[in-house]
Simulated scan of single mutants.
Amino acid sequence: MKHFYTLLLAFITSFSFAQLAPPTELESYYSTVDFTTTGVYLKNDLIDVTADKHVNYLSYGDVWDASRITDLDPNNSNNVLLLYGYNDTDGSITTDRTRGKYDNGGGVGDWNREHVYPKSLGNPNLGTSGPGSDAQMLRPSDVQRNGQRGSLKFANKNSGEFPNGESGTTNSGWYPGDEWKGDCARIIMYMYLRYGERCLPTNVGFGSSASTPDDMIDLFLQWNAEDPVVDGGLEDVRNAYHGNASNEFAQGNRNPFIDNPYLATVIWGGPDAQNRWEDLSINDEQQNRIKMFPNPVNGNEVSIISNQDIIAEVYDILGKKVTVQNMTSNQTKLNISELTKGVYIVKLSSENGTQTKRLIKQ
């Protein structure tokens, strides 16, 4: 039945998906991938390029050094960002979002390079070499917070639960937090490409694979769509570093679902994820003229710099539009005073196209 579904999916969706072509700077990396295909055919091409470009194999110890380069806090280069963390000011160490980059180890108040999903959920156990030392999968996390997560599978939160985007236990599983759920989904997708049946999504999260041509589950497709990649954010920084094999602690391969989350939609279906390769008629210079800062933000305004008039639409993490503001060219302030703390999606539209950015209000 899965094989039949794959053929049907490839036939039907080839007419409905957006045309894909990587930007100029990624054309060489993806030169062997046929982006006119869909379903498992596209997946197989991405499997090949992801494995072929993985030319440097890091030890578990090397990941300490890699993390101090790839996971820096953009607001303070002395710190790393902590997966599952969400608050640096509530008096609890375990909820910290940032930590000194040399405060690593295995004790209270330390950060460790943690497997995004427990290595025990691999089949067999991922260990601390090979897939267990893949730096695309290992992220800094507070030792105690990750201990609270334990060996739980990923799960969705209930309606109204964790209103400020917190991580925590829910539904017999672990919710990674609004800021991190997309990161986690895209890492799981990468691990599935790179290591196949050893890293099945059905083994690491609660969800159904009935609508996909293989073992991807709807939970991760949902998270990938709801929590897009931030332009130039942490995921991009990590991906760019590891995609350059000449960097000292780089693997040489990229996570294609960070480069374009929409690839997951083309392969597995589900809700339309962010397409970072659309609007190909807009040159990079024009695209890059739309800037939004600071992000994360502690106040009630965000600066938008653009050479065009734009419409800024802000959506909450469930996809509900919470505010709309028309903005003229040059620097303008987006008023977010009515937004509570949490993660939002900002859609910036102009006559030349649309950009989607993630906004974190602390």
Rank of each mutant, 00 (worst) to 15 (best):
G127P: 03
L121V: 05
T128V: 09
K119G: 05
V116M: 07
G106W: 11
G122A: 07
G122C: 03
N112I: 13
N123M: 06
G132M: 02
S120D: 08
G109I: 06
G109W: 11
D134Y: 00
P124W: 05
M137Y: 06
P140K: 08
M137F: 13
Q136H: 15
N125L: 03
P124N: 07
G105A: 13
P140Y: 10
G105K: 14
N112F: 09
N123S: 15
P118V: 12
G127H: 02
G130R: 05
G107M: 13
N112T: 14
P118W: 09
N112D: 15
S133F: 02
V116C: 06
Q136E: 08
H115K: 10
S120K: 07
D110K: 10
D134W: 00
R139Y: 14
L126K: 01
G132R: 00
G106Y: 11
L126A: 10
L138R: 00
K119P: 00
S141I: 05
P140T: 08
M137Q: 10
N123R: 08
T128R: 03
G109S: 12
G130N: 10
P124S: 10
G105F: 12
S133W: 02
L121I: 09
D134M: 00
H115S: 07
K119Y: 06
L126G: 05
P131K: 02
R113V: 13
H115G: 11
S141L: 04
D110C: 11
N104H: 13
T128A: 08
V116T: 14
L138G: 00
D110Q: 11
S133M: 04
G109H: 10
N112M: 13
V108C: 09
D110M: 06
M137W: 02
D110N: 15
Y117N: 03
G107E: 13
D110I: 10
N104V: 12
G107D: 13
L138D: 01
Y117G: 01
K119H: 07
M137V: 14
G106M: 08
